[in-house]
């Protein structure tokens, strides 16, 4: 998407939220949904619309783990790395996933298919280890089920 389109999208989303500064997180979520990331070009537009400084908006974007500055792959897999999943070989699962995808957590595969992320707790602690594949929960994951979940993705 061109920079002009990004700024136009940012202005439209901010306006939908009444240009209210307290809705900044909601605006950023929607922007990421629409553009695939919180694009740099959108930040000054949002700051102006919400009557905030660019530094304030930058501060919020960089504070929260969810907001990405570059678009993700076509699919996002979030693997839980918290204690409950650790107790069920979650560390091994993450290592296998990195090996299978040939990418470190936080990275995107070369073909742009999958972005692998490490998160802390999905609330699926009674069926650890767990992951979200494009927001679809999967429990009791091992290297084998991870591999087939990736294979199913287009």
């Amino acid at each position: 998407m061109s920079e002009a389109n990004q700024t136009a999208a940012a202005a439209a989303i901010a306006a939908r939220h009444g240009n209210r500064p307290d809705e900044l997180l909601e605006i950023l979520h929607e922007l990421q949904e629409e553009l695939g990331c919180v694009a740099e070009a959108a930040l000054p537009v949002i700051a102006k619309a919400l009557n905030l400084s660019r530094a304030e908006v930058h501060g919020v974007v960089t504070f929260y783990h969810d907001f990405r500055r570059e678009p993700a792959g076509r699919h996002v897999i979030k693997i839980c790395a918290a204690e409950s999943c650790q107790s069920m070989k979650g560390r091994e699962l993450l290592a296998s996933a990195e090996k299978i995808l040939k990418v470190k957590a936080g990275g995107t595969t070369v073909d742009g298919k999958v972005t692998l992320e490490k998160v802390y707790c999905l609330g699926l602690c009674a069926c650890s280890p767990a992951m979200l594949v494009d927001n679809r929960p999967v429990g009791r994951v091992d290297a084998k089920t991870f591999k087939s979940a990736v294979a199913e993705l287009a």
């Binding site: 209210r20 500064p21 307290d22 809705e23 900044l24 997180l25 909601e26 950023l28 979520h29 919400l50 304030e56 501060g59 919020v60 504070f63 929260y64 783990h65 969810d66 907001f67 998160v119 802390y120």
Partner: peptide, 24 residues
């Protein structure tokens, strides 16, 4: 309101800042 992946926002005053659209 949806959070954005910051554990600290479970602390009540950080949550308030987050609800106000700020860093938690």
């Amino acid at each position: 309101r949806t959070g954005a992946g910051a554990y600290i926002c479970g602390e009540e005053t950080a949550m308030l800042d987050s609800l106000e659209g700020k860093r938690g």
